[in-house]
């Protein structure tokens, strides 16, 4: 969506002025479209072009235009559909938890009146957010570890739900891997999203819920009629952003899943990565088509999500 508005602006700009630095700076100040275009849109158009060619990385032959061949090949590949479906499954497991739990927690923390406690809670909440992604993955790889991991230790030795023989195998592309990654992602985003909601809650005037309470409104109806509409914009941003990241996850699958095509972690992003960098054929035209199909599918769902969560009125 952003690309179209940018290219529209580019098209309507007077051509003669475009090359002078002054005009460029004016445009930059008024919406930084040229910079934005080069920085964000150029790679997208580049991939779009590659997806219509038989471009191969490190190949001495020049790329040929092949029309929609790559798209036809991708759409006819059952792996394209199953890998998109796997990404959708992950999003369904991850998205509700990562929105609802922080919302609940933010409402509770917002009511803490002791300033020192409130600060302490906020600092603890943001600790996972200052741990870099790789280190979060390493940490949870240990949590789920078969031998020394505390999760299996709790399940086997403390609660006795499993024995060492049938203890769950979380990682490595089993059916438990996607839920395990979803739990990790919810843990990681819990504090950060809570802080977002807290910022939204702080913007609600305190006398509004007070007045409603005096008038005899229940806590639930205060939440539904005052808190929920006030948080709607933040909710929309989080849902749309996290939908996008959840559908396009790749690092986690690379680390926890591996390149087994039957693994539930082999999603369309892995498929693309595999085709482009791993398999040795470097069919980057085909990989680009996979990427474009995935991106278009995501964009359609995003538009629907924005329509659903758009603040009313």
């Amino acid at each position: 969506m952003a690309e179209t508005t940018v290219s529209d602006r580019m098209a309507t700009r007077p051509v003669g002025h475009a090359d002078t630095l002054g005009a460029r700076m004016t445009a930059l100040r008024h919406g930084m479209s040229p910079w934005w275009f080069r920085y964000q849109a150029y790679p997208i158009f580049r991939v779009l072009w590659i997806s219509f060619t038989d471009y191969q990385y490190l190949s001495s032959e020049p790329a040929h235009f092949v029309g929609f061949n790559n798209y036809a090949a991708a759409l006819n590949d059952p792996l394209m559909w199953s890998s998109l479906w796997r990404a959708t499954m992950f999003t369904i497991m991850f998205l509700p938890g990562t929105i609802i739990l922080p919302l609940l927690l933010a409402i509770l923390v917002d009511k803490v009146s002791n300033p020192r406690l409130a600060t302490l809670y906020r600092v603890v909440l943001l600790i996972p957010a200052v741990i870099p992604s790789t280190l979060v993955f390493v940490l949870w790889k240990w949590m789920y570890n078969y031998q020394v991991g505390p999760i299996n230790h709790l399940l086997v030795d403390v609660f006795g739900l499993f024995t060492l023989q049938n203890a769950p195998q979380w990682l490595g592309g089993t059916s438990l891997t996607l839920p395990a990654i979803a739990v990790m992602e919810v843990w990681w985003g819990l504090g950060y999203h809570t802080i977002f909601f807290l910022a939204g809650l702080a913007a609600i005037p305190k006398d509004l819920p007070e007045a409603a309470r005096i008038d005899g409104a229940s806590e639930w109806s205060i939440f539904w009629h005052i808190t929920r509409p006030a948080l709607a914009p933040i909710m929309m941003i989080l849902v749309v952003l996290r939908f996008g990241t959840a559908m396009a996850v790749i690092d986690e699958y690379l680390i926890f899943g591996g390149f087994n095509r039957d693994s539930p972690t082999y999603t369309w992003t892995m498929f693309m990565y595999d085709q482009a960098f791993k398999l040795g054929l470097w069919r980057q035209g085909f990989a680009a088509a996979i990427g474009m199909i995935g991106a278009i599918a995501m964009m359609i769902v995003m538009i629907i999500l924005i329509r659903i969560f758009r603040p009313k009125g």
């Binding site: 739990l101 927690l105 509770l108 923390v109 009511k111 803490v112 809670y121 603890v124 909440l125 600790i127 996972p128 940490l139 949870w140 240990w142 949590m143 020394v148 505390p150 843990w187 819990l190 504090g191």
Partner: peptide, 23 residues
């Protein structure tokens, strides 16, 4: 109840890090 629930979540956030420190 509120502080109990909040502390439960805090515990969940800190537990993996404390585990590594102990390890």
């Amino acid at each position: 109840v509120r502080h109990g629930v909040i502390n439960f979540f805090m515990l969940i956030i800190l537990a993996p890090l404390v585990w590594v420190l102990m390890m």
